[in-house]
């Protein structure tokens, strides 16, 4: 054995930026995450050239999965052209030679912050969600070690209790996004800060979802055809945001999650949050031959 044999010719960076040993670690963790849906697998979480808290967890997963034939869509708040989404998409293209897309239907990997696209994902697609706080128990137990024991014992009583307290105090459950959800009947996970509107899209889905928190160093997954049930009481049904009847002022489409745009006169306009879905609808209404995929929501109701 010589030193030479242990090394290889110098290159500035690896394909996909991460080196092979970092990728191997991520691969091992991803497999464990898939084997135990909703369980938070700790991982080393390498630094990547974007700041922590800006999608480094999602990026590490995307970089591990990346190959030159990958077609990558990156969204932030539903939009492809948001500051961070475009920066991440550019980086992925730069280090991976992957094809960039804004069309949900064309993508093989969709990295997203805070939204799941409105068009239904297929069996061959992977959704990578960026996660700021992977621990659904944090509000009731800030100590991670204790929270971990609670997951081990499936001890979710305190989580139910705060939901109940909200119900008593406010007359309804006040949890906005990051709605805690039971995965495969065993582990409660945070679906990441997606709106309540998007949580049903994870239940018994056709696609694979990988959730990754870079700063907090935890990775978890929802394989296809896995149950994801928001924590609700039998007599208080789960309620998504009241966006069923809002109409997008640009595309005239209604029945999907909207961005509210406050106007000078005190009123509000609404636009589709899924920006490329909006673009496609406009293009179609202008007579272009555009294929719009099947959507999870139909007439503002999830099928």
């Amino acid at each position: 054995m010589t030193l030479q044999k242990l090394t290889r010719p110098w290159t500035a960076f690896n394909y996909g930026f991460l080196d092979e040993s970092a990728k191997r670690e991520l691969r091992r963790r991803i497999l464990k995450a898939i084997a135990v849906p909703g369980y938070q697998v700790p991982y080393a979480s390498r630094e990547v050239p974007i700041a922590r808290g800006w999608g480094t967890g999602g990026l590490q997963v995307t970089l591990t999965l990346l190959k030159p034939t990958s077609v990558v869509k990156v969204i932030d708040q539903g939009a492809d052209d948001s500051v961070n989404a475009s920066s991440i998409r550019k980086f992925v293209g730069r280090v991976g030679g992957a094809v960039e897309t804004e069309d949900t239907m064309e993508a093989t990997i969709i990295q997203s912050r805070h939204r799941i696209p409105e068009e239904k994902l297929r069996e061959d697609q992977i959704l990578v969600l960026q996660v700021p706080n992977p621990e659904p128990l944090r509000p009731v137990q800030p100590d991670m070690s204790v929270a971990r024991e609670m997951h081990g014992d499936a001890d979710y009583g305190q989580l139910w209790l705060i939901l109940y307290e909200q119900l008593v105090k406010a007359g309804r459950i006040m949890q906005g996004s990051s709605y805690p959800s039971m995965v495969n009947g065993r582990h409660v996970m945070t679906p990441s800060p997606i709106p309540r509107w998007d949580v049903p899209k994870l239940n018994q889905a056709d696609h694979l979802t990988i959730l990754s928190a870079g700063r907090e160093k935890r990775i978890f997954a929802v394989p296809p055809y896995t149950s994801v049930e928001p924590l609700v009481f039998d007599d208080v049904p789960y309620r998504v945001e009241d966006h069923q009847d809002k109409t997008c002022y640009r595309s005239d489409v209604s029945g999907f999650f909207m961005n509210e745009l406050p106007q000078d006169d005190g009123s509000s306009l609404y636009e589709l949050s899924d920006s490329h879905f909006g673009v496609k609808n406009i293009q179609k209404s202008e007579g272009e031959a555009i294929e719009i995929g099947e959507t999870w929501y139909k007439n503002g109701r999830v099928k």
Binding site: F13, N14, Y15, G16, E20, R24, L66, K67, P68, V95
Partner: peptide
């Protein structure tokens, strides 16, 4: 930045 994977990269991936 290197854009193309090596044969090893492609196989392990």
């Amino acid at each position: 930045l290197s854009i193309l994977p090596t044969a090893d990269d492609s196989r392990t991936n």
